[in-house]
Simulated assay, not measured.
Amino acid sequence: MRVQVGEVMTSEVVSVAAATPFKEVAEVLLARGVSAVPVVDAENRVIGVVSEADLLLKEEFKEQYHREGYRPPLRVRLRHRLGRAGGGAGGSGGVGTKVRGDTAAELMTSPAVTIRPQAAVVYAMRLMDEHGVKRLPVVDGDGRIEGIVSRQDLLKVFLRSDEEIAREIRKDVLDHSAWVDTSAVEVTVHQGVVRLSGRMRQRSDTRILPGAVLRVNGVVGVVDDLQWDEDDVNA
């Protein structure tokens, strides 16, 4: 089976309420050594996320800098103007709202990017990359928080033993290949690198198998030493 988010997530999650003041949010981040924290409502549903970047944004626009004659870079001034033009209601995540915000609800990015515990870790990786975040709140079907998964948590899939990886390949890839005979295929794994050897009937089958093996969690690479009896590719 593919490794699921629930298998690698951290279950002990620190969160803050919508009314939590700026300084308390900062203290939580520092005390826990995390870069972001979920914001939850009275029923423990995730309504947003406050990150270090959200807090630092407020510092970036302190009026004292303007009184001292400091002029922020053009890119910063433009972001500030855009935030004032489209900041919207509290909790929307607009730059202007965050600069003026004093509570978690005003500072947070909302809606939060969340994931279910049953999701595959590869999907979590894609979500983090797509949204540029380092951690995702893990929620149940009602949006209530169950854990948090970070990039560091996702790296755990690469710590699977070679024996565990080989066992999964034989059970879930080779033994479930009803479309082709894999009885003569041998699997060895060293440091996450899988070597496929042996023979298959058709050359086209040898092209499909390495791709299926590479999708197994913890596989770093695949060395294809498979031979074939019939070249149906160049026929």
Rank of each mutant, 00 (worst) to 15 (best):
A31E: 00
G93H: 15
D41Y: 03
K134P: 12
R81M: 12
V157D: 06
E52A: 00
A184L: 03
S204E: 03
G132L: 15
S35V: 05
V173K: 08
T188K: 07
S204K: 01
V233T: 01
V220N: 05
V3Y: 12
G83K: 10
L55T: 06
N234K: 00
E12S: 10
V173D: 06
V149Q: 04
Q4K: 12
T97A: 15
V219H: 11
G141A: 04
A105Y: 14
L82N: 09
R144A: 04
I169A: 04
T109L: 12
G221E: 15
P73D: 12
V194P: 01
D153F: 09
G90S: 13
M128A: 14
L55Q: 08
V3R: 07
R71D: 14
K62V: 10
P73K: 10
V187D: 05
L127E: 07
G6A: 08
A42C: 03
K23G: 03
Q191W: 05
Q191P: 01
R215N: 09
Q4N: 04
L30T: 05
L155F: 11
S110P: 11
R160C: 00
V121C: 06
R71Y: 14
F158C: 01
L30I: 03
V193I: 12
A184H: 04
D142G: 05
P111F: 01
W228M: 01
I165A: 02
G33D: 00
G218W: 10
D229Q: 03
V95L: 14
E59F: 13
Q191V: 03
R135H: 14
W228Y: 13
R75E: 13
H176C: 09
V189R: 03
E60P: 07
V180T: 14
R201S: 08
S92Q: 14
N234I: 00
Y123R: 13
R2M: 02
V50G: 09
R84D: 15
V223P: 08
T20W: 06
G192S: 00
G69S: 06
V194T: 08
M108G: 09
G86L: 13
G94F: 13
V8H: 09
I148M: 15
G86V: 14
V50T: 06
A184K: 11
V216F: 10
V113H: 11
V185Y: 09
L209W: 02
D142K: 05
P21V: 03
D175Q: 11
V76E: 11
I47Y: 04
V180W: 12
A18P: 07
K134F: 11
R32L: 00
G48D: 10
A89M: 15
H66L: 14
V95H: 15
P72S: 12
S15E: 04
G91D: 10
L74Y: 14
E146C: 13
E68H: 10
A166H: 08
T188D: 04
S92D: 13
M9S: 06
